[in-house]
């Protein structure tokens, strides 16, 4: 259900972007989705396809999702490590003074529109 709200947000943003660029149809949208963002790509694609059928601007629009791996930085020892297998605690020094440096992105990267 979270994906439903998210798709409406994306569709609203795309409507604005289309208007600014004088575009009547969008053929493809590329999203960048972090590994630890709370969105499930499969659900997002399902809701996306449903919404495209009811939105003239997005009829037949393909959703392309680029995953961004989650990386955590340790403030104590300076090491970066993969977030998903290791979690909050640094695998090298055991510190919990760590923070996510990438992996929660949810970005509309670009759109493709029919030329001419």
């Amino acid at each position: 259900m979270h994906e439903l709200g998210v798709v409406f947000h994306i569709a609203d943003s795309l409507a604005k972007i289309a208007e600014e660029n004088h575009v009547a149809r969008i053929s493809r949208v590329t999203l960048q989705l972090g590994e630890v963002s709370t969105v499930v790509p499969e659900y997002l694609t399902d809701v996306w396809n449903w919404n495209c059928k009811r939105t003239p601007l997005l009829t037949g629009c393909v959703l392309e999702i680029e995953r961004i791996p989650a990386v955590t930085h340790c403030g104590a020892c300076g090491q970066d490590y993969p977030t998903v297998p290791q979690g909050k605690r640094c695998p090298r020094c055991g510190s919990e003074d760590t923070w996510l440096i990438q992996g929660n992105e949810f970005i509309i990267k670009e759109i493709a529109v029919p030329d001419g």
């Binding site: 998210v6 947000h9 943003s13 509309i108 670009e110 759109i111 493709a112 529109v113 030329d115 001419g116």
Partner: peptide, 18 residues
């Protein structure tokens, strides 16, 4: 084959809401 033009957006999905 159809030709496409790419428009770079680079905008967070949450940007409008924020």
């Amino acid at each position: 084959m159809d030709r496409y033009r790419i428009i770079e957006v680079k905008q967070s999905v949450f940007a409008d809401n924020d």
